[in-house]
Computed example of a mutant assay.
Amino acid sequence: MIEILTGIAAGIIGGMGIGGGTILIPALVFFLRVTQQIAQSINLISFIPAASLAVYVHNKNGNIEKNILIPLIISGVIGAIVGSMAAVKLDPSVLKKIFSGFLFIMGIYEIFSKKAAKRP
């Protein structure tokens, strides 16, 4: 049951563009007791269908700036290759600390950022 609830929560957060991994990875590590590398691998696999649907909906609603896609895709693929090679070589406890630090920094940023929301 925890797998289903985790999947739903991660899907909702991922569909919003926040990133379902912020829910999925900690849930897999803490509740289902998988290693950090396995959790991140599962996150990447589950991300594909959820992201595909989210891209379709956001594109349909005109929320994608197509002129910046190619540079983002190319640099994202390069980053994914480098990051996955590094993740496989890192000790799970080190990887967990890096991921935790990233989430902490993003949380602090979100609390203190005062960006005005764009309205059409």
Results as ranks from 00 to 15, higher is better:
1 M>Y: 08
2 I>Y: 12
2 I>H: 11
4 I>W: 14
4 I>P: 11
6 T>E: 01
6 T>M: 11
7 G>F: 14
7 G>W: 10
9 A>I: 09
9 A>V: 08
9 A>E: 02
10 A>V: 07
10 A>F: 07
10 A>Y: 05
10 A>R: 03
10 A>G: 10
10 A>M: 09
11 G>N: 01
12 I>V: 15
13 I>R: 08
13 I>W: 09
14 G>F: 02
14 G>P: 00
15 G>F: 14
16 M>K: 01
16 M>H: 03
18 I>T: 10
18 I>H: 06
18 I>R: 05
20 G>S: 06
20 G>E: 05
21 G>Q: 04
22 T>F: 14
23 I>G: 07
23 I>S: 08
23 I>D: 04
23 I>E: 07
27 A>M: 15
27 A>Y: 10
28 L>N: 04
28 L>K: 10
29 V>P: 03
30 F>M: 10
31 F>N: 09
31 F>Q: 12
32 L>G: 01
33 R>T: 08
35 T>F: 12
37 Q>P: 08
38 I>W: 00
40 Q>E: 02
40 Q>R: 01
40 Q>F: 04
43 N>Y: 04
46 S>A: 12
47 F>S: 04
48 I>L: 14
49 P>R: 04
49 P>M: 07
50 A>T: 13
50 A>F: 04
51 A>I: 08
53 L>N: 01
53 L>W: 05
54 A>T: 03
55 V>F: 14
55 V>N: 06
55 V>G: 12
56 Y>H: 13
56 Y>N: 11
56 Y>C: 11
57 V>F: 11
59 N>F: 14
60 K>A: 14
60 K>T: 13
60 K>G: 04
62 G>S: 07
62 G>F: 09
63 N>D: 13
63 N>G: 14
64 I>T: 10
66 K>S: 04
66 K>P: 00
67 N>R: 12
69 L>E: 03
70 I>S: 09
70 I>F: 08
70 I>W: 05
71 P>H: 07
71 P>V: 07
72 L>E: 12
73 I>K: 01
74 I>W: 13
76 G>A: 04
78 I>P: 05
79 G>H: 05
79 G>Q: 06
80 A>R: 00
80 A>T: 02
84 S>D: 04
84 S>K: 03
86 A>D: 01
87 A>W: 06
87 A>T: 09
87 A>D: 08
89 K>P: 00
89 K>L: 04
91 D>V: 02
93 S>D: 00
93 S>A: 04
94 V>R: 11
94 V>I: 15
95 L>Y: 14
96 K>N: 11
97 K>L: 13
99 F>P: 00
99 F>Q: 00
100 S>G: 10
100 S>M: 09
101 G>D: 02
101 G>E: 01
101 G>S: 06
102 F>G: 09
103 L>H: 00
105 I>M: 12
107 G>C: 00
108 I>H: 10
108 I>V: 15
109 Y>T: 06
109 Y>V: 06
110 E>Y: 15
110 E>A: 15
111 I>R: 03
111 I>N: 03
111 I>Q: 02
112 F>A: 03
112 F>C: 02
113 S>Y: 09
113 S>H: 12
113 S>T: 07
114 K>G: 15
114 K>S: 15
114 K>P: 03
114 K>E: 14
116 A>E: 09
118 K>R: 07
119 R>I: 15
119 R>F: 14
120 P>W: 02
